[in-house]
């Protein structure tokens, strides 16, 4: 005990340095999370009072019995799976193209074109996409009409709304995954490719067995980031669809927010806790699967 106090006394200047960071982390990080978990065990009507009524796991039971939530959860998982695959495949393909010997001049222009949407305010980007898809204002259907392709229902179609969101989100995020792949590609050992080439490996074999294994670090990072990113998809829904048409894009975080907006704090925070658990379990397992593969 005295040893601890002594350590604190001698390290007091470091406590001074860390103080503002600690205050912000506790006030706007740790405390809200604990509060959120606490509220998830209380009755919504009393949640904000000094003495809330505790209801045990009733909110969780209510959430798991709610067909809208269950549909929303499976919709979120499907959307996440599709988005992760689409974004990573696209980003990897484009990074390979830019890293290849085929493209020398203009490399920076292509990089900038794909990365600019990453730093563009997401609200502004999605607002523009929302109107691009519009049937009367939008450029997309006007273009499809000119080249003689059938119209794309976009955000107004029950079956196309999710695809429309996926495309807009890919536009916003793919550049980020691309630069991670490019950083990894720049660090690879090129002599291995030459050796494989001399040994008579085809281009496909060189890519599959020489280059791809070296991209494992970028693949793990991107997969974990993309999983976290798309599991909590929110802004694009608020800007473009508000969960519609008929719940076709009502993902968990948006549904939880709607409940919060209606004052159903208990259920909203229970949903938040469930989504948090899902995010942790899925991203940790993706990470562990990736790491185990690396050791083999």
């Amino acid at each position: 005990m005295t040893a601890t106090i002594d350590a604190i006394r001698r390290g007091r200047i470091f406590y001074l340095f860390v103080m503002p960071f600690a205050v912000l982390t506790i006030l706007f990080g740790v405390w809200p999370i604990l509060l959120s978990i606490q509220v998830s065990f209380t009755a919504s009507a009393t949640a904000l009072r000094p003495e809330p009524t505790y209801v045990g796991f009733a909110n969780y039971a209510k959430v798991f019995a709610d067909p809208i939530f269950l549909a929303s959860l499976s919709r979120t998982l499907i959307y996440t799976a599709l988005s992760v695959v689409a974004n990573l495949a696209f980003a990897l393909a484009f990074a390979m193209l830019l890293a290849s010997a085929l493209i020398t001049r203009g490399n920076l222009f292509f990089r900038l074109a794909l990365f600019l949407p990453v730093v563009t305010p997401d609200v502004a980007g999605y607002v523009v996409w929302r109107w691009l898809y519009d049937r009367s204002f939008g450029a997309l259907n006007a273009f499809l009409d000119i080249v003689g392709l059938p119209a794309f229902a976009g955000l107004s179609g029950k079956d196309t709304a999710m695809a429309a969101l996926l495309i807009a989100e890919l536009w916003h995020h793919a550049g980020f995954y691309m630069i991670i792949f490019l950083a990894n590609l720049a660090m690879r050992d090129r002599s291995l490719e030459e050796a494989a080439h001399i040994d008579g490996a085809t281009a496909w074999q060189r890519w599959r067995y020489v280059i791809l294994p070296q991209l494992r670090p970028a693949l793990i990072i991107n997969t974990v980031y993309a999983l976290i990113q798309f599991l909590k998809t929110f802004t694009v829904v608020v800007v473009m669809t508000k969960g519609g048409p008929t719940d076709a894009t009502n993902f968990v975080s948006y549904y939880a927010y709607q409940l919060f907006d209606q004052g159903r704090y208990g259920e909203a925070t229970a949903m938040a806790t469930i989504l948090f658990a899902v995010v942790i379990v899925i991203s940790m397992s993706a990470y562990l699967i990736g790491e185990r593969g690396a050791r083999r």
């Binding site: 601890t4 706007f28 959120s36 927010y257 909203a268």
Partner: peptide
């Protein structure tokens, strides 16, 4: 130093928490 490890983990958990859902309790705070 005492408490530093806790602070780092607290921060890491906070940034893993889905942002838009963290914002809701932040409203209460």
């Amino acid at each position: 130093l005492p408490g530093f490890r806790f602070l780092r983990y607290g921060f890491l958990v906070a940034i893993m928490y889905p942002y838009m859902l963290l914002v809701i309790p932040v409203y209460i705070v």
